[in-house]
Nucleic acid binder design. Structure first.
Lengths: 331, 331
DNA sequence: CTGAAAGCGCTAACAT
DNA sequence: ATGTTAGCGCTTTCAG
């Protein structure tokens, strides 16, 4: 079938070691030899076999990107997909390929950790089980944890400053004069929820307000659930004049409820989202939201994982990315 | 390091051939043996090495999913991401992993086709270069082409019935009584554009209308470009009362322009999109659009590719998926 | 049902 | 700078 290194060696009259070197470390071979090797390779349509190489090098140059969120699958998740995209760009730069997988590819039904395909490292995003991290580390698998912090020695985690992001969002609403500010939470990890809730409470307190628990609701982070929840809140006699929604999907659902109730955004009800995903610009009016630099996040995750694989320990094992308020027309 | 088949063999007292069989074809081994092998494997934390297996089997059980569209990268593209998602689900079922890549991973800067990683097959989506398909086929690489038709002998292509989709959209607008129906095209492949344009023209003709070329515009398929284009059209003295937009992103941009001009949807201007992507439900009012069964498309692509890899030729090499009008509030 | 042995295509010492 | 050789971990005949 496909030509092998031996065919090329025969054809150009060099040994297979030389052919191997011509591809893997061109500088270790004379220029003349190199071009002869390449010529022979071209004629035979030869391409080095990555499997064979991986076999002897014990490195595949493949990493896995595993997203574990209840919300929606990996690729469709509007928060994670740009992160993945950025990680893939970084992978291309450093010659790594990325497998996008689910936990199922790493875990047997009985819970045992079992990596089907050989990987040089893993990016674990979302709600990660500590047990899995530990099992993986026992196998010496380099790991980067994304959007989640775990108290493990020497585990590289990238998180977001949820507290200040949420606080900025709520403060902004206070500054706009709102006194009745609802909160629409999604079902995210406890970690994220707590930090954002605290940010919200502290902002209100700073403005002399106390959270009205009737206006604090939790919903599945889907358009439909958000719309329904907010619809009901809107019927309250003393309804909120603003909502801080814990992500853009929730905010979009809220916007639909508001608009359908015949109210105007932001004149009657203002809303703020979180993530600055694509959704925030699809909406009209466009959504005021909290931006997380997802490009940076994905790039960083990939970079640090590659470094780890290549034996470079990062200076700090914990990076917290800032969250910045982006004011648009919805407030 | 990690335990190998030999470690397991030693531990349980069988030969490595038997251990191999216990994992690769359990039915070829007595039950007693099998459980002893598994026990030893568990104790050693052994996992078969996929690389070594791929090496001897000459099969990786990996496929590549390559999307080539100008619009936006693979994963972020609202049309392709659910397709990818479905393909991945199918892959999990049949024990294949999927690499999401760009053309760069398959093509050298000089244009030569060069597959970096060993793959058992490739799904090529979007605007595919015939030369690449031919080069790949010369290397005996199983291929499925998605959302694009190519006149190649024995090449499996999955396409969409753009003509009838577009026609249904335009007819619907005619039925609603619109006489001035604009068309907002994106920069898609000629194939797609032609079919949809013809559908639009034929629908109009059926209702005794002729396309007014002032109302037929092409824009980059982005929110901003669409918004700008439609804004201008709206200032025309005799502006259209409805727009058929060639995808949901364009429709969302159009909606923004309409709303910002102080007009109502659908009372003043109606819009129809194409794809039935996530965007159509984020918008308010929700978008009337043409649905393509993307789940089916992704699943089919993966299934057929796996069949091809496993030597089963599909009965027909060409599948055209229907496109169905979904009426929502925007018309 | 189980074992022995050959080899998948390549790289990395070690020589020359 | 180039060649020789010994595997990497596994599957798969072929025997028994």
């Amino acid at each position: 079938m496909a030509a092998t290194i031996i065919d090329v060696a025969k054809r150009c009259g060099y040994s297979k070691a030389t052919v191997s070197r011509a591809f893997a470390s061109p500088e270790a071979v004379s220029e003349k030899t190199r071009s002869q090797v390449y010529a022979a390779a071209r004629e035979l349509n030869y391409t080095p076999n990555a499997i064979a190489r991986a076999m002897v090098r014990q490195r595949t140059e493949n990493i896995a990107f595993i997203i574990h969120e209840k919300q929606s699958p990996a690729i469709l998740n509007p928060f994670y997909s740009p992160i993945l995209e950025a990680a893939m760009r970084e992978g291309t730069k450093r010659d790594y390929s990325i497998f996008v997988t689910t936990m199922q590819d790493v875990q047997l039904p009985n819970g045992e950790v079992y990596i089907k395909k050989q990987m040089d490292g893993i990016i674990l995003a979302g709600e990660v089980d500590l047990k899995i991290v530990q099992a993986l580390r026992r196998q010496n698998m380099p790991i980067v944890v994304l959007n989640n912090h775990m108290d493990e020695e020497n585990l590289f985690c990238i998180t977001v400053d949820h507290y200040h992001g949420a606080r900025a969002a709520a403060e902004h609403l206070c500054q706009r004069g709102h006194r009745k500010i609802g909160l629409l939470a999604g079902r995210f990890s406890q970690q994220v929820m707590d930090a954002r809730y605290k940010g919200y409470c502290d902002a209100l307190e700073q403005y002399g307000l106390t959270p009205d628990l009737r206006f604090v609701q939790t919903a599945e982070p889907t358009l439909e659930a958000a719309e329904q929840t907010i619809s009901q809140l809107l019927t309250l006699p003393e309804r909120p004049t603003a909502f801080f929604c814990m992500n853009d999907t929730l905010a979009a659902g809220a916007a639909k409820a508001i608009l359908r109730a015949g109210l105007r955004i932001p004149e009657d009800v203002a809303i703020v989202g979180f993530d600055d995903s694509y959704i925030s610009r699809v909406m009209e009016p466009e959504l005021t939201t909290v931006r997380v630099d997802v490009d940076r996040m994905g790039q960083l995750a990939a970079q640090k994982l590659f470094d780890l694989i290549e034996g470079k320990e990062p200076a700090q094992m914990q990076v917290e990315l800032p969250a910045e308020l982006i004011v648009r027309r919805s407030t």
